[in-house]
Write a protein that binds this DNA or RNA. Structure first.
Length: 600
RNA sequence: GGGGCGGUAGCUCAAUUGGAUAGAGUCCCGGACUGUCGAUCCGGUGGUUGCGGGUUCGAGUCCCGUCCGCCCCGCCA
């Protein structure tokens, strides 16, 4: 085999006159006739034009070169020279070419079902790209993304190593825990009827490592949650997981801000500066969402008191509800931009988030027009003043319980910003959101559920509320938000057994159950656990932001589809009956399960 | 579990109101061409219209079911 001396993408005019050997894939071929063939040879570093010319080399080489097709794997030896024809400014290597003297076909390809061609990449169905992932990953864009991902993890490990963190692996086969997402489970062969679970996160293990005295822990770790994926969510994903001992909330926020700033500087050469902090309450009030995108305005304004003065049934009904509110979004200049058809579309949009619709009114030189104009007449001036209305504005209202209004208008706000192109694509707006409530009451289950997780502690001074006002208790949790996307979340943990017990009880976990499910953690806390706190960054989302994609599958080498399949390996798949027998597992299919396979 | 969009040649798409032999580009195959660069030009192969059923003289098109992909709701401590 010809031994490679250089990479395709690295050759420049400086290499003029050198004899080199390259290896890679035939990106394109241009056959100019019996005696002249151009090959663009591709490796991970780029493209290099290789010339086979009957005037330079023997006929057998040229003949074999003529048979080359896209994606054949070859090695060539030849002379680097300034291009005889015009240089190609679109290639980094465009000033030179390699005049081939030897050709070795390392692997003749069958006709590829798809080509790793950036021209076609947008058009090829993602289904095909996932099915033939090994070909799609040859695309420069995909190679770039995965290399950027590697840079992120390398910078991360270096940064935290420099700050005294130790990377420690935690197990993948663990005990199932209540709370949280659905577990993936693994049957035990040695213990019939017993099961492992795959970790939703290494949460408890990292706390135990703090109890073990490691002081600062880091792990770039795979997590598993058996829930339906989304564009930015996979059942199997990666976290940059961190935990520190003897720290308070601000210690963590300070260090993690420094890390984030460092990462953006290293990756993008951009200084994001200091990261502002906002309370959960303020985020909900102003933006209707706990991960506000602060790159644009369109903030929510409470107009409940004004709405109460109207005769509008929708407002009145909403205000009659427990925690009923009416809020408004002012869209500057929206009157001219939005037809009835468009605002009806937004009405449908908010309905998916539980709102009944989105009442609308335009403010023009003639006063309020269209929509709910006649209902707001009694509050015309007050509303104008409250919202700071100017001629040409449009107002959207949300009227329902506070939860529903926040959700609907919060999502509408984001959608409006996208539709109206109010978002500066170069902006990086980071934000810490703090002071989350400890619990949220789940009416369906009739109990409190942890907003963060059951090991999150209350903020200092909030402890007493656990007894008399759990819903009002503020936790020591924090989320890091970037451009409206949650990229990290964490908390100061409970490190004393009585507090942990109290929280478990509030969550409806009695002492017996706590001992059975979390006994090892409670014992670890009893035997001397330091104050501690930590955070986890969503690695996939970090990379998505840094490379500018909104498809999580782009940043994962071998992702799964929205139904959890791997289209390349065709996982999940059946197992041998003997395997089931060894595991003491019997399958009982639901009645309506169709016979597998055969589908297009 | 629910809603929306999609599935036609290896790939990307078209096909009138339900009407003739399902077309085009590209890939691939053959031919021409010595400076191309998403090469060009000429010719050719290539189809279970995702799958199953139904309506009809006739179905890519209409109906029912189902599978797959994407987006969303639910879910995701």
């Amino acid at each position: 085999m010809l031994k490679r001396t250089h990479m395709c993408g690295e050759l420049r005019i400086d290499h003029d006159g050198q004899t080199v050997t390259l290896a890679g894939w035939v990106n394109t071929y241009r056959d100019q006739g019996k005696g002249l063939i151009f090959i663009d040879l591709r490796d991970r570093e780029g493209l290099m034009q290789v010339v086979f010319d009957l005037e330079d080399v023997g006929e057998h080489v040229v003949t074999e070169a003529r048979s080359l097709r896209r994606e054949d794997v070859i090695a060539i030896t030849g002379l680097v020279r300034k291009r005889v024809g015009d240089p190609n400014p679109r290639l980094a290597t465009g000033e030179v070419e390699v005049m081939a003297t030897k050709l070795e076909v390392l692997n003749k390809t069958e006709t590829p079902p798809i080509l790793p061609d950036e021209h076609d990449a947008q058009k090829i169905a993602e289904e095909k790209r996932l099915q033939y992932r090994y070909i799609d990953l040859r695309r420069p864009r995909m190679q770039h993304i995965l290399r950027r991902r590697f840079e992120v993890t390398r910078i991360t490990r270096q940064f935290f190593a420099d700050h005294g963190f130790i990377e420690i692996e935690t197990p993948c086969l663990i005990k199932t825990t209540p709370e949280g997402a659905r577990d993936f489970i693994v049957p035990s062969r040695a213990y019939p009827g017993q099961w492992y679970a795959l970790p939703q996160s290494p949460q408890i293990f990292k706390q135990i490592l703090m109890a073990s005295g490691f002081d600062r822990y880091l792990q770039i770790v795979r997590c598993f949650r058996d829930e339906d994926p989304r564009a930015d969510r996979q059942a199997e994903f990666s976290q940059i997981d961190l935990e520190m001992s003897f720290v308070d909330r601000d210690d963590i926020i300070t260090l993690m801000s420094e890390f984030t700033r460092h990462l953006w500087m290293k990756m993008l050469d951009i200084d994001i500066g200091d990261i502002p902090v906002m309370s959960h309450q303020e985020a909900m009030d102003r933006f209707g969402i706990d991960r506000p995108d602060t790159r644009f305005d369109l903030e929510l304004t409470d107009v409940s008191d004004l709405a109460a003065k109207t005769e509008f049934r929708v407002f009145q009904d909403a205000l009659a509800k427990d925690k009923g509110v009416v809020k408004a979004i002012r869209v500057p200049g929206g009157a001219a931009k939005m037809s009835r058809k468009i605002t009806d579309g937004y009405s449908e949009f908010v309905k998916t988030f539980g709102a009944g619709g989105v009442p609308t009114v335009k403010y023009t030189e003639n006063g309020y027009e269209t929509g709910v104009a006649k209902f707001v007449a009694p509050i015309a001036d007050e509303l104008k003043q409250r919202l700071g209305l100017e001629v040409g504005d449009l107002v959207f209202f949300g009227a329902d319980t506070n939860t529903v209004v926040c959700r609907a208008l919060g999502e509408l706000r984001n959608k409006l910003a996208r539709d109206l192109e109010l978002i500066d694509p170069t902006a990086w707006n980071f934000l810490w959101v703090v002071d989350f409530p400890m619990f949220e009451y789940d009416a369906e289950q009739g109990r409190w559920v942890a907003l963060h997780h059951p090991f999150t502690g209350p903020m200092p001074g909030e402890e007493d509320k656990l007894d008399d006002d759990p819903g009002g208790c503020i936790s020591a949790a924090y989320d890091l938000v970037c451009n409206g996307s949650e990229i990290a979340g964490g908390s100061i943990r409970i490190h004393q057994p009585p507090m942990q017990q109290k929280v478990f009880r509030l969550l409806g976990i009695n002492d017996e159950e706590a001992e059975q499910k979390f006994g090892f953690l409670l014992r670890a806390l009893r035997y001397g656990a330091p104050p501690m706190g930590g955070i986890a960054f969503g690695l996939d989302r970090l990379v998505m932001l840094l490379v500018g994609t909104n498809n999580i599958r782009d940043v994962i080498a071998f992702p799964k589809t929205q139904t959890g399949q791997d289209l390349m390996t065709e996982a999940p798949g059946p197992v041998d009956p003997q395997q089931l027998e060894e595991l003491h597992v019997r399958i009982e299919l639901p009645n309506d399960t169709p016979a597998p396979a055969g589908a297009g």
